[in-house]
Amino acid sequence: MSVYFLCLVLFCIGLYCILRKRNLIKIIIGIAIIEYAVNLFFVLVGYKMGGRAPILSPGQSIVDMVDPLPQALVLTAIVIGLAVTALIAAIAMRVYEKYGTFDITKIRRLKG
């Protein structure tokens, strides 16, 4: 049970990072933390303590197998997360070129 709770803590750290930090790069790190928390939770959902790899071979009965589906899905989710992080980092670089700062309190042309 405590691992799930720690996942929640990790998620909240990421959320805090996005909401409270002023630096664009730190916000990107916060996004990465949130993604990791969700992915970790997804793997844990399919994990079984002491389970073995889900390979079916003749003459073996199916006992104590780890659910392989979340692992495959998390792989996809990690790739998506990579694309998002790369894109946001590229945008942050262009923002720095234009505004000369990473501080979000100084990047405020849009309002109203």
Binding site: F11, L15, I18, L24, I27, I31, I34, E35, V38, F41, F42, V45, L69, P70, A77, V84, L87, I88, I91, A92, R94, V95, K98, Y99, I107, R108, R109, L110
Partner: peptide, 30 residues
Amino acid sequence: EHEGLEASFKYAVMGTVASSFILLGIVFLY
């Protein structure tokens, strides 16, 4: 341009958080 980049950053951050919530919901349902 200035506005486009700023808006895109804001949109991307909020959109990613939203996607994380959606993925978390899918995990719970799974």
